[in-house]
Design a protein around this nucleic acid. Structure first.
Length: 259
DNA sequence: ATGTCGGCATTGTGCCGA
């Protein structure tokens, strides 16, 4: 079972690019972030035509997450638990059953800039809520993963110019510590299970010619429970997608599970 | 120091968020 995460930065502007990548990469499941659309505005047809079931958790103009799956989507839930007053659409879950059942969480973690300020406070509070949900998933002792745009640069090796991000909400020590607290519950970060090498990125800013200069950062991650990590066959980043027509500023990150 | 997008409110363009 191939499961991918892709921050598409606007579904309406990305139907072509997303369709082309789906046709080529053939993921069984794709979790999407920044659909920037309400549920009714999500163009489901091109994806249903390709055999995908679609579950969305949208919001007008900003944020918004979705799951595409060739397998039926079961027990879909929307929203990150822990704060009923949080109106931002950043979390969706579903179970897909192949040879094994896998609980899949798609997430768009808050950016948090500027620092300091309410947006950074919201990011840290959101990460604390995510940690609680992550602990619950572990307690189930079943294959589960949390995939998405974490807006976290885990280590300096995950940025082409780490010094440029030193004061940024994506890389501050407090951000990295909050990310580690989640991982250290018992999760395996898929990409780092395969390589410790620097120079692998999932995002290049539209500004300042970041792609042309390979000025990237690695902020899209897949965290797996032990029962899921034991099923992992491979993991990769579809880097070349960034160089195509009308690309998102992110590229897909995927895992292949024996499930 | 600056360079870009997508979406929105809105009909030409400025704001927001990233």
């Amino acid at each position: 079972m191939k499961i991918a995460t892709f921050n598409i930065n606007g579904i309406k502007a990305r139907v072509g690019a997303l369709s082309d990548w789906l046709d080529e990469a053939q993921p069984d499941v794709a979790v999407l972030q920044e659909i920037k659309s309400v549920d009714e505005g999500f163009p489901t047809e091109p994806f249903e035509d390709r055999g995908y079931n679609v579950a969305t958790h949208g919001q007008k103009g900003f944020n918004g997450v979705a799951i595409l799956s060739k397998l039926p989507l079961e027990d879909v839930t929307r929203g990150l638990p822990g704060d009923e007053s949080d109106a931002q659409a950043r979390w969706i879950e579903a179970t897909v059953v192949g040879r094994r059942a896998v609980r899949i969480c798609g997430l768009y973690l808050p950016n948090g800039n500027p620092v300091p300020g309410p947006k950074y406070e919201y990011k840290l509070a959101w990460m604390a809520r995510m940690q609680a949900r992550a602990a619950e998933l572990l307690a189930a002792e079943e294959p589960a993963l949390m995939a998405g745009d974490y807006n976290v640069i885990p280590q300096d090796e995950d940025a082409a110019r780490p010094e440029a991000w030193r004061e940024d909400a994506l890389a501050l020590p407090e951000t990295r510590a909050a990310f580690r607290r989640i991982v250290n519950l018992g999760y395996t970060e898929a990409f780092r299970a395969r390589t410790r090498a620097p120079g692998h990125y999932s995002f290049w800013d539209f500004q300042r010619g970041a792609w042309d200069r390979n000025d990237g950062i690695r902020i899209d991650h897949v965290l797996m429970t032990p029962q899921c990590a034991d099923l992992m066959l491979d993991c990769g980043i579809d880097r070349d997608v960034r160089g195509r027509e009308k690309p998102s500023d992110h590229v897909p990150v995927w895992v292949e599970l024996d499930a």
